[in-house]
């Protein structure tokens, strides 16, 4: 489904990703872990199409298409969703208005009829239950005045409505208390399916207690240093990132 090959990305001439490769198949859940500054968020942002990243070499192919050629909205319409690490506050735009515009933009692209206000409300009410959000959130400006947990739930709500093929969650667990974490996790688990892939970008193992990944990758210095099954996350928890860096890359020692 997603094939990242030898991806090199720089920000303001500073190389961030240095030859990163990753393959994600339909039906799989991947966790990308790594210390701060390892390039986790850069990878998520590049896949979603955020500007300001210079792709110096490599490719990102999604379902046979060169993703890097597509505008962010076209990526979303193809079925890519990024849950932002820092969801953006948009004063003056009601949540429900944005959600409806997004759902209809994607429906239109798929050739489905656009939903009217009543049908949309029906749909969104159903999804609200999934993330245990009150209806009043629909009528507040997007993310304005939301707590950290509410913002993250709002991201999962959007994901549930847009039903992406590939969902990437960028540090969705950061700053969540255990209850909010469980809600977010059950929202994500509800989306798991054989046609869908999920990539969790996270710093901590904690989220993976609730969303059990099929594959775990350790990112450091802009590359995947080590890949394994879910047990790799537990090992990381116990032994820290330094262990991977030392065991794989001797140069990391000097960096420490």
């Amino acid at each position: 489904m997603l094939n990242v090959e030898n991806l090199n990305v720089a920000v303001a001439d500073e190389p961030i990703l240095k030859g990163l490769s990753l393959q994600v198949n339909a039906g799989e859940v991947h966790a990308i872990m790594g210390p701060n500054g390892s390039g986790k968020s850069t990878l998520a942002n590049v896949i979603a199409g955020r500007e300001g990243y210079e792709i110096t070499s490599g490719s990102v192919v999604f379902e046979g298409q060169n993703l890097l050629e597509l505008a962010p909205e076209d990526r979303a319409r193809q079925g890519i969703f990024l849950a932002f690490q820092y969801p953006v506050e948009i004063p003056g735009v009601n949540n429900v208005y944005m959600l409806k515009a997004a759902v209809n933009a994607i429906r239109k692209h798929r050739g489905d009829e656009e939903l009217d206000a009543i049908d949309f409300l029906k749909l969104v009410r159903e999804k609200l239950k999934l993330v245990e959000m009150k209806e009043e959130f629909l009528h507040r400006p997007v993310n304005v005045g939301f707590s950290g947990g509410e913002k993250k739930r709002n991201e999962i709500l959007q994901m549930a409505l847009l039903e992406p093929r590939l969902a990437m969650l960028d540090e969705t667990d950061s700053g969540l208390d255990i209850d909010a974490l469980k809600v977010v996790a059950s929202g994500v688990n509800g989306l798991r399916g054989k046609d869908r892939a999920i990539v969790l970008v996270t710093h901590y193992q904690r989220l993976l207690d609730f969303i059990v990944p099929d594959h775990v990758h350790v990112l450091a210095g802009g590359r995947v240093l080590k890949s394994g099954g879910k047990e790799l996350a537990l090992e990381l928890e116990e032994r820290g990132y330094g262990w991977v860096e030392q065991s794989v890359s001797p140069s990391a020692e000097t960096a420490l």
Binding site: A48, G49, R50, E51, A71, P72, E73, R75, A76, R77, F81, L82, F84, P87, V88, E89, I90, M98, A101, A102, A105, I106, H109, Q158, L162
Partner: peptide
């Protein structure tokens, strides 16, 4: 904010 909306499928 523009990117956020676009990343949800809304045209630029």
């Amino acid at each position: 904010a523009v990117l956020y909306l676009r990343s949800r499928g809304i045209g630029e």
